[in-house]
Simulated assay, not measured.
Amino acid sequence: MNRKNYSCFVGIDISKKDFYVAILQEERTASYTFENSKKGINAFIRLIRNQKIDLKNTLMCMEHTGVYGKLIITKLIEKQINFCVEMLVQIVKSIGVHRGKNDKVDAMRIALYASKNHQEMKLYQPMPMILEQVKILLKVRRKMVNTRADMNKYPNELELFSPELGKLAKNNLKRINKSLEEEIKRIEQEIHKLILSDDKLNKTVGLVTSVTGIGKITALHFIIFTNFFTRYDNPKQLACYCGVVPFEYTSGSSVFRKSRIHPMANRTLKKHLHMSALAAINHDPEIRDYFNRKLEEGKNKMLIVNNVRNKLVHRICAVVKRQEPYVRNVA
């Protein structure tokens, strides 16, 4: 947690073309607009210096906007400025009921959010370049896999109702499919080279994949989203982030619903965990016995699968913490 007391708070609202800045210092406020480019970011840094703002006692805060925030994050890291990157939903829910919206107002709301919650906020920890590179390659690979699946969906459906037309469509997609498969394999080879080039990444991938059911791609997603497993405090917190923890929904004696998983989760990790859980049920005797035992008890199948996903998260956290590969229990 960030326990330092700050005298100045800067809220930054980022869009594709511009970013809006709100400076909250004591009871004074000021707002500015800059172009979201190297030139605009340098102008923002000059403004901070010209106003003689003490950067050591300043906390900047922005919402997570993906690639739009890359330039300014890089500059803030370079200048060793204290800043946080927060989820939009967390900022919105913390400031209560509000009406109206524009970028200037949003920047001020972010600054107010930082001033109220800075004791609990965590300073931004940059992701190592090796993970940034792997992350980009994984995204490109995923887009290619999705493109291949989308293209093959139509001829497969067409073949059910018109075999000749379906065959015609498939024949004309063969070359594209072959090209995509070759590119996917090439990207996977590039990812493998990056893994081997970094000792820490190579060791962590080996530890995570030692858990039965967890493949290399799933392991890499876990490592990237957790920044080498540093963005969570305990396995339960990570399991919640993955969307595999059910939450109670009751109130008094009249509202009583079944515990359900909250939709706000990392869907990529959840998807990979689901496939890993199915693989673990097929290949891990301990988990297979657990799955069959719960089925015999009459438990819902998807509930059991979700419990398996939760078990896998705890196993992953355990091997990373101990820095020892997972060892199956032998009966």
Rank of each mutant, 00 (worst) to 15 (best):
Y6F: 13
G11V: 02
I12Q: 05
I14K: 07
V21L: 06
I23K: 04
L24W: 13
E27Y: 13
A30R: 10
S31R: 12
K38H: 06
K38I: 08
G40P: 06
G40A: 08
I41T: 02
I48N: 04
N50H: 14
N57M: 11
L59Q: 13
M60G: 09
E63W: 13
E63T: 10
G66M: 06
K70I: 10
L71M: 13
E86L: 00
E86C: 03
E86Q: 02
V89Q: 15
Q90D: 15
K93S: 15
K93H: 15
H98A: 00
D103F: 08
K104V: 08
V105P: 00
V105D: 03
A114G: 05
S115M: 13
N117Q: 08
Q119Y: 12
E120S: 10
M121N: 12
P128Q: 04
P128W: 01
K139Y: 05
R141Q: 13
R142I: 11
R142F: 05
V145G: 11
V145F: 01
D150S: 15
D150E: 14
N156E: 15
N156C: 13
P163G: 01
L168E: 13
K170A: 01
N177F: 08
K178D: 10
S179C: 11
E181L: 14
R186H: 06
R186T: 04
R186Y: 04
L194F: 09
L194C: 10
I195L: 00
V205R: 02
T209V: 07
T209Y: 04
S210R: 00
V211W: 07
T212N: 06
G213H: 02
G215A: 04
T218C: 12
T218Q: 03
T218W: 05
F222K: 08
I223M: 03
N227Q: 03
F229G: 15
F229T: 15
T230R: 02
T230Q: 08
K236H: 10
C240N: 06
Y241G: 12
C242A: 12
G243F: 01
P246M: 03
E248A: 02
T250S: 07
S259M: 04
R260M: 11
H262R: 10
T268I: 07
L269H: 15
K270Y: 02
K271G: 11
A277T: 10
A277H: 08
A280Y: 12
A280M: 03
N282F: 08
D284R: 00
R293M: 06
G298A: 00
K299E: 09
N300W: 01
N300G: 03
N307L: 00
R309G: 12
N310P: 00
V313Y: 10
V313T: 09
R315P: 05
E324F: 03
N329C: 09
